[in-house]
Nucleic acid binder design. Structure first.
Length: 639
DNA sequence: AAGCGGCTCC
C-alpha cells in the first residue's frame, strides 16, 4: 500500500483536471465498470500515452488504490519513450519494487518486436533516469544492437559489461561475439573469442556460423573440427556454411556423418541439406529427406516446403514441386517466386505467367525476386512484349525499383529476340552502370544473331568490366569462327592466353543407382571409356542417317576438321549420355547435369538421339532445363 | 527474465 505522504505528493504533481476530467475512452471503460471500485486489469492496461497514464494514476489515487496495481512495464514504456516526461520516476519512487526488472521486461518486448530502435532509446533513457543496467538489461540491448547492426550502441553496452563486472558472464560474452561478427568486425569478434577464459558450445557455434557467412569456410571448418563438443546446431551451422559457399558435396558428406553420430535433423538442417541436394541435383537424397520431413511433422514449415519446391525444380521434377506447392496451406512470396522461377527454368512461360496472375488474384504482393522469375520466363520463350510490360509494371504498379539483375533479364530478352539495336539503346540509357553480366547477355544475343560488330562493342566493355571471365572470350572467338574469320578467332584466343585467362573445365554428371558419375571433356580415364566410345560410334552412324551433321564451328582449337570432330564427340555431356544409355533400362529417362551451358552441337545431337533410342533425356545446364523427346527439345531451340 | 540458425536469385 502506498504511504499517504507519497500519494499526496504524486497527486499534487498532477494538474487538477486530471482527477475529474477523464478522456472519453477512459471514461467509457470506467463507466462500464460502473460502481466496481477495483479497476480490472483490462482497464489498467488501457493507456497508451502519458496523458492516459496520468488519468489512470489519478483514478487510483482518487479511489484510494495502491499504485502497485499499475502494469509497470507499460508505465516504463509509456514514460521512457516520451522525452521530457519524468512521471515514471515519480511512480517508481512510490513503489517498492526493483525497478530495473520492470525496465528490462519492457526492453525485452521492444527488442523482440518490430520497433527495435525504441529498445535502444529506452536503454538511453534508463541511463538518464539513473537506472543501473543489470545482466539482463545488457543481454536485451545487445539483442537489439545485433538486429539493428548498431555497433556503436553495442560498444557502450560492452563498456558497461566491463565496468559493472559482468565480463565473465558467458551469455553476455557470446552476445558480444555475435554482435561484433554481424556488424562486420570479425577481427574483434575473433580476438574476443580467443581471449575468452572459457567457451561453451554456443560460443563455437556463433564463430562457425559467422565465419561461414563471411565465406571463410576453411577457418569455420577448422573451428568445427577443434570444438570439444558439438550439438545439432553446430552440425547445422557447418552444413549450412558449406552450402552457402557452394560446397554442396561437403555439406552432404557432413550431413551423413552427423546422422551416423546419432543426431537427427531438425527443420533448419533439413533446409540446408535440401539446398545441397538442389545444387547437386541429388534427387534420391532429396526424396529421402522429403519423406523424413513428412514423418517428422515438418510439412507445415514454410521454409521446408519452399526449399523442397526448389529442390524438386532443380532436380528436374516439376510435377513433384507442383505437388508440394499445391499441398501447402500457407504460401509466402518465396513459395510463389520459387514456383514461377521453376516454371521459367523449364521453359513453361505460359504457366509461369498464369501462376503470377493467380498469385496477384490471391492478393499476394510480388517482390524483386518474383519479377526476376517472370522476366526469365519471358526471355526463355522470347515473349518480348510481355517482358516489356512486366518491366514497366514493376515500378508503375508495385513500386519496385528494378535492380541490375532485372536490367540483365531485359537485355537478355531483347538481344536474344534479335532486337540488338533496342538492347543496345536500353543498355546505354540504364540508370545503373551496366556490369559484366549485362554486356555478357548482350554478347550472347550477338552470337545468336551473328552480329560481329555489335559483339566487338560488347567485348570492349567486357575487357574492362570482367577481363578474367573465360566465357566471353570463348563466345567472341566462336562468333568469329562462325563468320569464318579464323585469324580474328585466333587473336581472341591469344588475347585470352596473354591475359592468363583459363578456360573453366566443363563437366557433366549422371547418377546411376545413387552413385554420381562425373565426366570431363575428352575423358578417356573412365573405366568404361572403351565401351563408351564404341557405343558412341554405333550411335553416330544412326545419327548421320537421320541427318545429324557435326557442328565443328564450336570447337576452338586449331586442328584438322576430322580432329575437331573427334574432339566434339568427347564433350562431357555426350560421354555422360552414352554412359547413361549403357547403364539404365530401355525407355528409362536419362538425367544429366552440366556446369556450363549445353553446347550447340550437343543440343542438336541429343535431339536426334532422343528419337533413335526412344527415351526422354533431361539436361540441366547452368541456365535452364532442356527436355529432349522424339527429336525435339522443350526449349524449342530458343535458348 | 538471457546468448547461436534456414528458403526464392544474379
Amino acid at each position: 500500500m502506498l504511504p499517504m505522504v507519497q500519494s499526496v505528493c504524486l497527486a499534487s504533481s498532477l494538474p487538477n483536471h486530471y482527477h475529474t476530467h477523464l478522456s472519453p475512452k477512459l471514461k467509457r471503460s470506467f463507466d462500464a465498470k460502473n460502481n466496481v471500485q477495483i479497476p480490472t486489469s483490462e482497464t489498467l492496461y488501457n493507456f497508451n500515452s502519458p496523458f492516459e497514464l496520468k488519468q489512470v494514476v489519478a483514478f487510483l489515487i482518487k479511489t484510494n488504490k495502491p499504485l502497485s496495481l499499475l502494469p509497470l512495464p507499460r508505465v516504463a514504456s509509456v514514460c521512457a519513450l516520451t522525452p521530457n516526461f519524468s512521471f515514471a520516476q515519480q511512480i517508481f519512487n512510490c513503489i517498492e519494487q526493483p525497478e530495473v526488472s520492470v525496465w528490462n521486461s519492457c526492453l525485452r518486448n521492444l527488442a523482440e518486436g518490430n520497433c527495435v530502435t525504441n529498445a535502444i532509446f529506452l536503454f538511453h533513457q534508463m541511463r538518464i533516469y539513473n537506472v543501473v543496467p543489470d545482466i539482463f538489461t545488457c543481454s536485451f540491448v545487445l539483442k537489439a544492437c545485433v538486429k539493428l547492426l548498431d555497433l556503436s550502441c553495442g560498444k557502450i553496452v560492452h563498456a558497461y559489461i566491463e565496468k559493472l563486472g559482468f565480463q565473465s558472464n558467458l551469455v553476455l560474452l557470446n552476445a558480444l561475439l555475435h554482435l561484433y561478427a554481424t556488424c562486420g568486425a570479425m577481427a574483434d569478434s575473433m580476438l574476443l573469442f580467443d581471449k575468452m577464459p572459457q567457451r561453451d558450445v554456443v560460443s563455437w557455434n556463433i564463430m562457425i556460423t559467422q565465419l561461414a557467412k563471411k565465406g571463410d569456410i576453411d577457418e569455420a571448418f577448422e573451428l568445427f573440427s577443434q570444438m570439444p563438443e558439438r550439438n545439432l546446431r553446430s552440425w547445422t551451422a557447418m552444413i549450412t556454411g558449406f552450402v552457402h559457399c557452394g560446397k554442396a558435396k561437403e555439406a552432404v558428406r557432413l550431413f551423413k556423418e552427423m546422422e551416423e553420430s546419432g543426431l537427427s535433423a531438425n527443420e533448419v538442417t533439413v533446409v540446408a541439406v535440401l539446398a545441397a541436394c538442389a545444387d547437386l541435383g541429388a534427387l534420391e537424397l532429396g526424396r529421402r529427406i522429403h519423406e523424413y520431413s513428412n514423418k517428422s511433422g515438418f510439412k507445415r514449415n514454410v521454409h521446408v516446403c519452399n526449399t523442397l519446391i526448389d529442390m524438386y525444380i532443380k532436380c528436374g521434377f516439376l510435377e513433384a514441386a507442383k505437388a508440394v506447392f499445391e499441398e501447402m496451406k500457407e504460401r509466402t512470396i518465396v513459395s510463389w517466386s520459387a514456383m514461377i522461377q521453376g516454371l521459367a527454368m523449364h521453359g513453361q512461360a505460359d504457366e509461369a505467367l498464369e501462376l503470377f496472375n493467380n498469385m496477384i488474384k490471391t492478393g499476394m504482393k510480388p517482390n524483386e525476386v518474383t519479377f526476376l522469375g517472370v522476366l526469365h520466363a519471358c526471355s526463355h520463350m522470347g515473349l518480348v512484349n510481355e517482358g516489356r510490360e512486366f518491366f514497366a509494371s514493376m515500378t508503375r504498379d508495385y513500386n519496385i525499383t528494378p535492380q541490375i539483375e532485372h536490367y540483365g533479364c531485359m537485355v537478355d530478352l531483347l538481344s536474344r529476340a534479335g532486337l540488338l539495336k533496342e538492347a543496345y539503346e536500353f543498355i546505354v540509357s540504364m540508370p545503373i552502370k551496366p556490369n559484366g553480366v549485362i554486356w555478357g547477355s548482350f554478347l550472347g544475343g550477338c552470337r545468336i544473331q551473328k552480329d560481329v560488330e555489335m559483339a566487338e562493342e560488347a567485348m570492349r566493355h567486357l575487357g574492362i568490366l570482367d577481363p578474367l571471365n573465360d566465357g566471353y572470350y570463348i563466345i567472341m572467338s566462336n562468333i568469329y569462327a562462325e563468320a569464318k574469320r579464323w585469324e580474328d578467332a585466333a587473336r581472341v584466343r591469344k588475347l585470352m592466353k596473354d591475359r592468363g585467362v583459363k578456360k573453366t573445365p566443363g563437366w557433366s554428371s549422371i547418377t546411376i543407382a545413387g552413385v554420381m558419375h562425373e565426366f570431363v571433356a575428352g575423358d578417356d580415364n573412365h573405366p568404361q571409356a572403351e565401351e563408351i566410345f564404341e557405343i558412341w560410334d554405333k550411335l553416330l552412324e544412326q545419327m548421320r542417317f537421320k541427318g545429324y551433321v557435326p557442328n565443328t564451328s564450336v570447337v576452338l582449337l586449331d586442328m584438322e576438321e576430322n580432329e575437331k570432330e573427334k574432339y566434339l564427340y568427347r564433350h562431357s555431356e555426350k560421354l555422360a549420355l552414352v554412359f547413361g544409355l549403357m547403364n539404365t533400362k530401355p525407355g528409362e529417362t536419362i538425367r544429366i547435369m552440366k556446369n556450363l551451358r549445353v553446347c550447340e552441337d550437343c543440343h542438336a545431337a541429343f535431339k536426334v538421339i532422343s528419337e533413335i533410342v526412344k527415351r526422354e533425356i533431361v539436361v540441366r545446364d547452368r541456365n535452364r532445363f532442356h527436355c529432349f523427346k522424339d527429336g525435339l527439345c522443350s526449349c524449342k531451340d530458343y535458348w
